[in-house]
Design a protein around this nucleic acid. Structure first.
Lengths: 151, 151
DNA sequence: ACCAATTTAGTTGTGCACAACTTAATTGTG
DNA sequence: CACAATTAAGTTGTGCACAACTAAATTGGT
């Protein structure tokens, strides 16, 4: 394989992944507009609906996001009335993110989202599972490599 | 499948894709730091190395990015001396992005990037090709769906 | 030839990701 | 106990993505 071919291959891979990520984001953007949520905000709400109230720290561990991303995002969710932030009494450093009535209620309207997404992908459950398995394997390898490369 | 299970599945898929995208970005960030490029800037350079000088419009078509993203990005590339922007004489609306000497020279140093990325993924060429095929299929389906959903 | 529609870049504003930093509270060790 | 190290959250600054818009040049229809 020539150098030129390697670069072409890299362009193809980069582009495919970049484009897929943005396309996914685009479909969620359209579908989530009804709920008034962005894609990352929806991710946070999914975790809260599933896990219940959590400190910002725990939320970050579930989503692999740091406070630099989460702090303003959670403030926006508070701004639209879906959550409240409450500083812990036991540990004054910690801030618990609590779903409001509206936040809990929004879950009902979110129930249709997964089915619409599945329809949009045109993939069946098996293909989704395979893709997910491959992506997770990729992520694990990449995270390890980023560490090894000395992030 | 219950509603709860659907939401959990959606969280898993969203998370996998989101995480993979960010992990990929992270590895490229580390590897591209030596070249002084961000991941999207590297994508632009890859296209220019492959296709030669292009108007901003054509660049956007190759990368599916609009001028809102490309204009400032190309200006930054110009700022670090890798490209020059030249307004076309035939069509004064169009701006051609031209590689400078330094821009051309950087290609030599970029040749090692693809191999390092391949190493980081731990995937072989076949797996990469399969993943790419699947991602492209996904992107096509998602773009069509975003249109249908009325983007 | 004229003018409305289109096209190409660019600008503005919002939100996310992340690095680097700050602040305040807690923990651990001598 | 005292104080250095750690931890949680937040802030600041840079860059990207995208929607909505503007400005200027070109095209096309009449």
């Amino acid at each position: 394989m020539t150098d030129t071919e390697w670069l072409r291959l890299d362009r193809q891979i980069c582009f495919s992944l970049h484009a897929a990520s943005r396309a996914f984001n685009g479909v969620y953007r359209v579908i989530l507009k009804d709920l008034g949520l962005t894609y990352p905000q929806y991710l946070v709400m999914l975790v809260l609906w599933e896990q219940g109230d959590l400190p910002v720290k725990a939320l970050g561990e579930h989503l692999r996001l740091d406070s630099g991303t989460l702090s303003p995002l959670v403030k926006r969710l508070e701004g639209i009335g879906l959550v409240r932030r409450e500083r812990s009494a036991q540990d004054e450093r910690s801030v618990r993110v609590r779903l409001t009535e509206e936040g809990v209620a929004l879950r009902e309207r979110a129930l249709e989202v997964p089915r619409r997404i599945m329809g949009a992908t045109g993939f069946d459950l098996t293909e989704i599972a395979e893709l997910r398995e491959r992506l997770d394997r990729l992520t694990t390898a990449l995270d390890a490599a980023a560490l090894a490369e000395g992030r």
